[in-house]
Design a protein around this nucleic acid. Sequence first.
DNA 1: ATCGTTCATCGTCTATCGGCGATGAACGAT
DNA 2: ATCGTTCATCGCCGATAGACGATGAACGAT
Lengths: 125, 125
Amino acid sequence: MKSLSASAAPHASAPSCGAPDAFSRGLAALAHPARVEILRYLAGVDYCCCKDVVQRLNLAQSTVSQHLKVLLDAGLVRMSPQGQRSRYAVDVAALRTLCEAVGALATECAVRADEQGREMCRGDH
Amino acid sequence: MKSLSASAAPHASAPSCGAPDAFSRGLAALAHPARVEILRYLAGVDYCCCKDVVQRLNLAQSTVSQHLKVLLDAGLVRMSPQGQRSRYAVDVAALRTLCEAVGALATECAVRADEQGREMCRGDH
DNA sequence: ATCGTTCATCGTCTATCGGCGATGAACGAT
DNA sequence: ATCGTTCATCGCCGATAGACGATGAACGAT
């Protein structure tokens, strides 16, 4: 009953909460400076193997590989094995989609807040 | 808050990257379904105390308080103590700013990828 | 066949996250 | 003064993230 974490809610299923959706995974992937740096680096080079990122970021190769895997799972980069290397490339469309999702959330919040923003200062309920 | 660049601590022995900037904190705050739900709920009501969110989300009060604190630290919500309650409200401007930061990252990646996307054929396409 | 390179994965470690209950402070009402 | 309510914080716990080194597979070159 205590171990819910993402599956079993104590009482009833939580409202739209509890699933690691694409939105959450995408944002979580972006919520790390190293991964943002990887993305920007990937966009700036024509082809990119893991080694290049390692030299760029001054991190261990295994660490970089992990970060790339996170970005891959989030759908923000694509990978095509090429010989003994791995060609990584930014999925610009996915990045845009994620950006639009954030924008949609911001817009929704703005609209809903504006709909009744004037009476926010009543002080009672 | 235009500093998107991850400073990428040069030394690898550091446990973390050492630069939890506003961008990372904001995205990390959004990267949890419960917190997104809190944001949307906050935007939809004129007045909101912690208790309301607790009933809404079916989470323990302490858990909700933690989530609110995360959102607060990320600057996405504002809080004003009001009597024994705490009035929480979405900071729409901050949300927009964060959204624009994501957009800037997406645009930068798109531009840089487009600048040489056509000539990325070094050997094969 | 052998070697060097590249990369993904495994194991380990520490720090943090995310959940909870319990506690105490602050405040309004009785 | 006392009680009830609300909230933030603490301690605890399991799970995850993020770092590393080591290992082995895949591949090109010798």
